[in-house]
Amino acid sequence: MSAPLRVPVLLTLLVVCGTTAVVRAETPPINYMLQCQGCHLADGAGSPGAVPPLRNLVGKFLRVPGGREYLIRVPGSAQSALSNRELAELLSWIIRRFGPEQDAANLAPFTAEEVGSARGRPLVDVDSVRRDLLRRIAARDLSSSGPEGP
């Protein structure tokens, strides 16, 4: 389309397509897509060196104190455009979706209350908190039942 026509046509389209400021509640799979999948990817693999994987790992954070809160306060969660209830449902879905299986099976579902109280303080230093949690997870697994399988 010629340049002079493009702007008014697009403008009309945008007006006709209506306001998009309304945030509508979606199901967890769709919320995962819209809020997380772009970086963590559909299979939860993440991006090496840039985006942590969820696959076979995210559930482990529930094994140690502070891990649950970490999953809420990490900025990707805390800052998502979701209500507390939607975020709680999404986090539970993520645990079940990506495991490990044992953590999915033992999951105490996230509640809107705990999400609401933690997400107001998004983590500033994610790296050292995450490193510390992983260290404690490894230590706990070592002491309880031997090294964790892949």
């Binding site: 702007v7 945008l14 007006v15 209506g18 306001t19 998009t20 400021a21």
Partner: peptide
């Protein structure tokens, strides 16, 4: 002059 979400319009 434009509709919602035209924050990049010239």
């Amino acid at each position: 002059q434009g509709g919602p979400d035209t924050h990049k319009d010239a």
